[in-house]
Amino acid sequence: MVRALYALVKLSFLEGVRRQILHVMVLLSLVVIAVAGTVTFFDLGVQVKIVKDTGMVMILLAGSLSIVFLLGGALFHDVEQRTVYPLLARPIPRTLYVVARYLGALGAVYLGMTIMSVALVALLWIHLGYLSAMAIWAIAYTYLEVALLGAVTLLLSTFLSPAMTVTVTLFLYLMGSIKFSYLHHLAERSGGLTKWLILLVSAPLPNMEAFRLKDALVHDLSVPTTFLVTVAVYGVLFTAFCMAVASWRFGRQEV
């Protein structure tokens, strides 16, 4: 079973790293991070803030878009191109296949994100002369956010076509990102039925905002450990739940 999982993860990983979307996103992000690091119009304090802000945004943007596009049509295309049949003819549980597909794609995206993170940390090292612990935390929670987004994408891909999956996932991602900063304020200002409608729609959305420690990094603030632990558990639980539903759904599908 472990050998099968390893082989499938490797297959999915290799497919992921060959996709052009990943190359483009990583290269584009590296260029933006490098350009942000070479801007010399401002004094050092402002420049470091610019590097941190731009770097974190680019890592998140590239990671999120890559995982959505890699996993949005993964299962669908495997069935359409019939590459899944020889695998499912073997004694491999479908759950294992779904998990391997997810882990492989996530590994490919993590590889790209690691390249960007190394570039960002190196730039910060050059500017500051020391390694900021908050930078590591902020990057780690971005990884967790991307993992959760990947699980949501895979879950939706078992119900929808690739184009719809990408569209709906990005829409939900956006909604999850403004859940507290906008939707809840909107609900507070609205009254009656509108308020409850907004709260009802926003309730099942994953709280993506909670993973973003960029502000803490940029403004050198500390984040309570309770919050960090809760968000980590929340991310892992939400991801596991989405994966379980995706596996269940794929297991019941006619292929």
Partner: peptide, 8 residues
């Protein structure tokens, strides 16, 4: 900040 907000 949102990490100080108990609502989150």
């Amino acid at each position: 900040h949102f990490w100080d907000d108990p609502e989150h």
